[in-house]
Amino acid sequence: MRIQKDFYARDAITVSRELLGKVLVRNINGITFKGKIVETEAYIGAIDKASHAYGGRMTERVKPLYGPPGIVYVFSIYGMYNCFNIITKEEGTAEGVLIRGIEPLEGLEEMAKRRFDKDIDTLTKTQRKSLTNGPSKLCIAFSIDKNDNWVDMTKSESIYLEEAKEAKVLSDEEIVETTRIGIDYAEEAVHFPWRFYLKGNDWVSKK
Results as ranks from 00 to 15, higher is better:
Asn133Ser: 15
Lys5Val: 11
Thr40Gln: 07
Thr154Tyr: 02
Tyr43Trp: 11
Lys5Phe: 08
Glu173His: 09
Ser205Ile: 00
Ala164Gly: 15
Leu20Ile: 10
Gln127Phe: 11
Ala53Tyr: 05
Ile144Glu: 09
Leu161Ile: 03
Val190Cys: 14
Glu91His: 00
Lys89Ser: 05
Ile3Ala: 03
Ala42Trp: 09
Glu157Asn: 15
Val15Asn: 09
Ser136Gln: 00
Leu108Asp: 00
Ser156Gly: 06
Pro64Gln: 05
Ala50Gln: 06
Arg61Phe: 07
Pro64Met: 02
Cys139Glu: 05
Arg2Cys: 04
Thr178Glu: 11
Gly182Ser: 15
Arg17Leu: 12
Phe84Ser: 08
Arg17Glu: 15
Ser136Lys: 04
Asp6Leu: 04
Ile99Thr: 09
His191Thr: 04
Arg2Phe: 02
Gly200Asp: 13
Ala112Tyr: 03
Phe116Arg: 04
Ser130Ala: 10
Phe33Ser: 09
Asn133Ile: 10
Thr132Gly: 00
Asp184Met: 15
His52Lys: 06
Ile3Asp: 02
Leu131Thr: 04
Val169Pro: 03
Thr32Asp: 09
Ile183Gly: 08
Ala112Met: 07
Asp172Pro: 12
Gly134Ser: 08
Tyr197Gly: 12
His191Leu: 02
Arg61Ala: 08
Glu177Ser: 13
Leu138Glu: 11
Phe192Glu: 02
Val151Cys: 10
Glu188Asn: 10
Ala46His: 07
Phe33Pro: 04
Arg195Leu: 00
Ile102Cys: 06
Asp6Arg: 01
Thr126His: 06
Phe192His: 11
Asp145Lys: 01
Phe142Asn: 11
Thr59Gln: 05
Arg115Gln: 02
Val74Ile: 12
Leu105Met: 14
Ser158Thr: 14
Lys165Gln: 13
Thr154Gly: 06
Pro69His: 03
Ile86Lys: 02
Ser16Gly: 15
Lys5Asn: 09
Thr32Trp: 03
Glu60Asp: 15
Ile87Ala: 07
Arg114Ala: 13
Pro104Phe: 11
Gly92Met: 03
Glu188Cys: 02
Tyr73Ser: 09
Leu65Pro: 08
Asp145Thr: 05
Asp119Pro: 03
Glu60Leu: 04
Leu24Trp: 12
Leu20Ala: 14
Tyr8Arg: 03
Glu163Gly: 02
Asp148Gln: 06
Glu106Phe: 01
Gly67Val: 06
Lys155His: 04
Ile28Trp: 05
Val38Phe: 10
Arg114Ile: 09
Arg10Pro: 00
Ile13Glu: 13
Gly70Val: 12
Leu20Arg: 07
Arg195Gly: 00
Lys146Val: 05
Lys118Asp: 07
Arg128Lys: 13
Glu41Gln: 13
Glu177Lys: 10
Pro135Asn: 04
Phe33Val: 01
Gly96Tyr: 11
Trp194Ile: 06
Asn201Arg: 01
Met111Tyr: 02
Trp203Met: 12
Asn82Pro: 03
Lys118Thr: 12
Tyr185Arg: 06
Ile77Asp: 14
